[in-house]
Amino acid sequence: MEATVSVLIGLFFAVAIYLLMSRQLVRILLGIAILGNAVNLLIFTSGRLLREVPPIIPEALQVPAETIANPLPQALILTAIVISFSFLAFLLVLAFRAYQELGTDDTNEMRVAEPTGDVRPPQGY
């Protein structure tokens, strides 16, 4: 079971990383979004998969009666989801502002911080 999901996770990673290597900010952002999902699924699978038994203790019991899905990865992923969502929101706005100010969404044309041919150190004394 884990193996098949692992292959899907591999696909998530491959797609995310292919998008990230693009020059266009939009594609990079899509890549970041997918990367976040890929990682969450990876953590989820890493804590082993179990079908349909949510980690909730029934009203009548003090401890769960049967084997339940591993709750810890779920908690970790919840934390990670919110964090990656925050970052995505920030990046989206950043990309938008960069586009406004720099007039491009092609990272190769974003050369304000590192202008082309700027490495000309002064010589002499």
């Binding site: 292959v7 996770i9 591999g10 990673f13 797609v15 890493s46």
Partner: peptide, 25 residues
């Protein structure tokens, strides 16, 4: 991209095929 994807997939398969310590949970 495919290399990384395959790498993570393989790694994950390898890890999940081993017994797991559920002590924390």
């Amino acid at each position: 991209a495919l290399a990384i994807g395959a790498g993570f997939a393989g790694l994950l398969i390898q890890i999940t095929s081993a017994p797991f310590d559920r002590r924390l949970s």
